[in-house]
Write a protein that binds this DNA or RNA. Structure first.
Lengths: 131, 131
DNA sequence: CTTTTTGCAAAACCTTTGCACAACC
DNA sequence: GGTTGTGCAAAGGTTTTGCAAAAAG
């Protein structure tokens, strides 16, 4: 495992992500960070997002719209995906359900060892409902 | 909305899917149906899988490994993804949790209307654990 | 005969990767 | 100075699409 060296691009990427609550895609991160680093490349954005996810500093969400989304909050929580505008929001579920998802980790069902889980809810977000 | 006409390819695709419990990818469906229709194209497989999913006859699973998986069982249930071999299995969860996922449909959280939900669990499947 | 589906190939997309050069320590 | 990160461009893998021919009704 190679050592990890600091990079201004990586810091900018992580800092930008922390200002957002809508779980942007790599492309959105790229456009944003480009304002600070006009020469940054999409490959660098992907490399750093992947690295940060591997380090456990951010989470990579595959919500099923084709593009990966990135979340600075790595705590266990569920996500809501708007089927109209595609927005991805954090969802504050009833405690029982969040706990039952978390509680599964470490157990085994049908001989399959469970390490973790995610839940996604689909529907229409408050903003789209108003239109 | 155009009318839907019967096609032997579509029937073969759906029939093959119903014989499987491991939620194959489009590519696997393609290879299988090719034995019966040697000239079938991958595009046709995708078109029919997409159509069947839109009709609600099958479910499209985006588990996050890059390729979509298809499930002939459209009832509400959760999936288990083996992080070693990539297999996707149905998961028989405790009733409470399945119910709380189902029960969310139709409700609203933070003003977001929830239509449905899915949960994925990740871990190591029984087959891989034995190796 | 009209409409839908197919096969083929090309395109669209998102993501990863090889390489020479720059940045880091 | 040795190692890691970057920018660029090319390649990789999955899914969609345009079009003429074939199938369905």
């Amino acid at each position: 495992m190679p050592a990890i060296k600091y990079s201004r691009q990586r810091e900018a990427i992580q800092r930008f992500l922390m200002t957002r609550r809508d779980h942007p895609t790599a492309d959105v991160v790229y456009s944003a960070v480009k304002r600070e680093f006009p020469n940054i490349s999409l490959g660098t954005v992907y490399r750093n997002l992947t690295l940060l996810a591997d380090l456990g500093e951010i989470a990579r969400l595959r919500i099923g719209d084709g593009a990966d989304h990135f979340d600075p909050d790595t705590s266990v929580h569920c996500h809501f995906v708007c089927t109209q505008c595609g927005r991805v929001l954090d969802l504050h579920l009833e405690k029982e359900m969040a706990d039952s998802l978390t509680g599964l980790a470490g157990t085994a069902i049908d001989g399959n060892r469970i390490d973790g889980g995610t839940a996604y809810c689909y529907g229409v977000c408050s903003r789209c409902r108003r239109l």
